[in-house]
Write a protein that binds this DNA or RNA. Structure first.
Lengths: 253, 253
DNA sequence: AAGTGGTCTAGACCACTAA
DNA sequence: TAGTGGTCTAGACCACTTT
């Protein structure tokens, strides 16, 4: 709260950031009201709001209407994507999906799953990875994974419709190991490629994941291939950055 | 530009977003001036600015002082982190770092490297991964990797000072294969763990990477271990989300 | 010189939360 | 009911870019 000299919103943000990083403002603590800060820094409330917006976009602060602004608390879940750590890969599904639920239960929290199945023209990036042409369609299995009722992860799996026509994968039931089902159909996945990028969420994702503004998401796209390098499956996951760490364990050989 | 009814900033953002996604506003195109939009939507300029801020935070728009606001263009680099694709891993360094330069040259662009070396108390997450106690120090080799003069990647490698004391790794010269140097010192890395998360950049990162606001970054942390599971090296990379895709190729076996 | 985005003020009303 | 953040208006000045 060192006022005195005239400060722009950037200086106010710097001052508050310093207090957060030094611990003067502890995680979870409530910040002074905007009107209070405006008085203390001797600026208009609009200027204070610009500073707070900056801190929000850095993920340091969250604001709640009618309640106040708070120093954000971090406790992201660690989540292994390499699958190499698993002692029992086949029981858990080749994509390690169920390991997510297991790790959630390990922390005494309740995982939930909402699953819908659609037949769709896949989005262009997915279509190109599955090698689907203009008119070809795919089966989309869309999952929203929740913890204690809060959406944590969007996960859409696409498979060529010709591959899974008439199988259990067309039904909106949980299939613990989609790889297993594909295996039993004679489609054995031997290799996969993961692509990861990060970006700001779209409007739809903000709503579906109930994201506070300023939260970045990682987009994880996994494409699975059989021994002939024919693509079998493309899984697109959207993970809020503040809730997830992706872990890969690899041999250096 | 469907005005008529009273619109809040969210509706204006929706309208502009629709125009961008439909291509009515093409990539790179200049948006109408804020005052123009305010007149067209029949709102105050402040309201227009709120809408534009939203689109900026979604990465759809960039604004430049005195010039205007523009629809953003995307063209992220693909960058393999798994190292499994490389035919000549040892020549290129076990962490695949030089493959980055190679991939840049493949696209007829010019990679540059700025390297500094410091002896530091490592940040807490790094210290814990290297197994360093309170007073122990590390050698930090800090790289800024540029393409055509534009900073593309921050990459800081930390090694326990006791491991590399008096070696070439203490000198601010490019060492093409740090793993090779460590190898020759008797420290052979056999395994590494990658951790990836995404977040908004800190103020310092925004400046060092010259990021437009609203760009998320991926933080990639790679910890290398020897055969005794003793940590040798921790490399922290910060990648602007709009410029990078991380790729892992993995066996499903 | 004209146009543009960045910043700031002063004041207002609303919706939501908590005492 | 009082406090809080969310939104919006009307107007101003500045710094930077383009003509």
């Amino acid at each position: 709260m060192s006022a005195v000299t005239a400060m722009g919103w950037a200086n106010i943000a710097d001052d508050l950031r310093r207090q957060i990083e030094s611990g003067d403002l502890a995680a979870g603590e409530k910040l002074p009201a905007e009107t209070t800060l405006a008085r203390e820094y001797d600026v208009n409330r609009t200027t204070v709001r610009s500073a707070l917006r900056r801190l929000t976009s850095e993920g340091l602060v969250v604001s709640q209407k009618g309640r106040g602004s708070f120093v954000r608390q971090y406790a992201p879940l660690r989540w292994s994507w390499s699958g190499f750590e698993s002692q029992d890969k086949h029981a858990r599904g080749y994509d390690g999906v169920d390991a997510w639920e297991a790790s959630v239960r390990d922390q005494d929290r309740t995982p939930e799953l909402a699953l819908t199945v659609e037949i769709v023209r896949p989005p262009a990036p997915v279509a190109s990875r599955l090698g689907l042409g203009e008119g070809e369609i795919a089966v989309a299995r869309r999952r929203v994974r929740l913890i204690d009722g809060v959406p944590f992860l969007l996960q859409d799996s696409y498979m060529p419709e010709s591959l899974v026509r008439g199988t259990d994968l067309m039904l909106p039931h949980d299939v613990s190991a989609p790889g297993g089902v594909l295996n039993s159909l004679g489609h054995v996945q031997t290799r996969y490629v993961d692509e990861i990028t990060c970006r700001m969420p779209t409007k739809v994702e903000t709503e579906r994941l109930q994201l506070p503004s300023g939260t970045a998401v990682a987009e994880h796209m996994r494409t699975g291939y059989d021994a002939d390098d024919c693509p079998l499956r493309c899984m697109v996951s959207v993970l809020p950055g503040d809730r997830h760490v992706m872990v890969y364990e690899l041999d250096a050989s």
